[in-house]
Design a protein around this nucleic acid. Structure first.
Length: 351
DNA sequence: ACGGCGTATCCGTTTACCTCA
DNA sequence: TCTGAGGTAAACGGATACGCC
């Protein structure tokens, strides 16, 4: 597995909240399935992923064993978004992959008035744009004029409006001004999807075509998803490394124990009460019952076909592990992230 | 129930624009 | 100063889902 990771600077600096409950078999559900909400539309999948939440499910577990909230939680700005079932609550969002533009006011507060008047807003946007061509947004915040807006304006109004609508053959790609981008970013932080009214209102506010706003949000969602995928890859990479290290440690321990058994084959046939506990068993016992040192060891022999985790509740009265099965059955009780130091091999008792 | 239509989003791709060596 | 490579982001077209009639 080769993973290349390139986290954005904002992501690298972002405050992160890592909630782990990782099982061994890491099944990955990023966005879809892991955070599906209700209707089962793809919109929700991406939106859920865009919220910065990662759910890693472990196989059969019905609920995600791990939730990764890697992006900073941005306080709600209280924009007046219309409540729709497909829209997500603002409190759960917080992605700001690129930057968090500092905007003094509410983007949607500024748009609210524009949203009220809904009649033929596309035509109004056209008129607004045509009034300020090639102005690189010098009159922010209330007058957004894109560079080269005059080129983009004629196609306003129609979904999938193309530059060829006005007879031009080559599409002219205009760069949004910093102010426009910041405004869109603010809006996106509040809601990652737009309904038609919001789109038109934003377009009018920014002197852009609704199609441009739509495309910007689409691309923005794609960027968020890409960043989230990179973060997911990084986490899975760390998981893989941890598990590899754990596997390596267990293999080494197994080899040592086999060697021990070969040197002293009679070791296994001695009565349990005459055996001295090997360091690994000591470790298992201490991990399983740290609070009750005087209590019988819970590291009882586990069935070979068990789930691999010795259950203290299921363990009958046992004094000491009489075989190495307890060791193997309890291996999973070790915390993955904190490999245990390797104790030296016990000097085999010759008595 | 089924199909047609309009509209929405997502995805992959193209391409204009920008930066830098 | 010019130029080409590479990156970024706007825009496009197709696929698909959903609601309405």
């Amino acid at each position: 597995m080769e993973l290349r990771l390139s986290l954005g600077e904002a992501m690298a600096d972002a405050g992160r909240e890592l909630v782990l409950g990782l099982g061994v078999g890491v099944g990955v559900g990023v966005g879809p399935g892991a955070a599906r909400e209700g209707e089962g539309r793809r919109d929700h999948d991406v939106a859920a992923a865009a919220r910065g939440g990662l759910a890693l499910g472990c196989g059969s577990s019905p609920e995600p064993a791990m939730r990764l909230a890697l992006l900073p939680m941005v306080p709600s700005l209280g924009f007046p978004w219309p409540s729709e079932s497909r829209h997500l609550e603002a409190s759960t969002r917080g992605f700001d992959v690129n930057q968090a533009p500092s905007s003094g006011g509410s983007a949607w507060g500024a748009c609210a008035a524009a949203e009220e008047e809904q009649e033929d807003t596309a035509a109004a946007a056209r008129a607004a744009v045509s009034s300020s061509p090639n102005d690189s947004g010098g009159s922010f915040p209330m007058d957004f004029s894109a560079r080269g807006a005059s080129d983009a304006a004629p196609g306003a109004g129609g979904s999938r409006g193309s530059d060829e609508d006005d007879g031009r053959s080559a599409r002219k790609k205009l760069r949004l001004s910093k102010e426009q981008a910041a405004f869109l970013e603010e809006s996106f932080k509040e809601h990652s999807t737009l309904n038609p009214r919001q789109k038109v209102a934003l377009a009018k506010q920014l002197n852009l075509r609704p199609r441009q706003v739509e495309v910007w949000f689409q691309n923005r969602r794609a960027r968020t998803k890409l960043k989230q995928t990179e973060v997911d890859c990084e986490y899975l990479k760390r998981c893989c490394e941890t598990l590899t290290e754990e596997n390596r440690r267990l293999q080494k321990e197994l080899a040592e124990l086999r060697a021990l058994k070969t040197v002293h084959p009679f070791y296994m046939h001695l009565p349990a009460t005459t055996l001295s506990m090997c360091p690994s068993c000591e470790r298992v016992a201490s991990n399983s019952a740290p609070a009750s040192a005087a209590a019988p060891s819970p590291a009882a022999p586990a069935p070979a076909s068990g789930a691999g985790i010795a259950s203290p509740a299921a363990a009958p009265e046992q004094h000491r592990p009489s075989s190495f099965a307890a060791l193997f059955s309890s291996a999973r009780s070790f915390p993955l992230a904190a490999p245990q130091p390797q104790p030296p091999l016990p000097a085999p008792s010759s008595s």
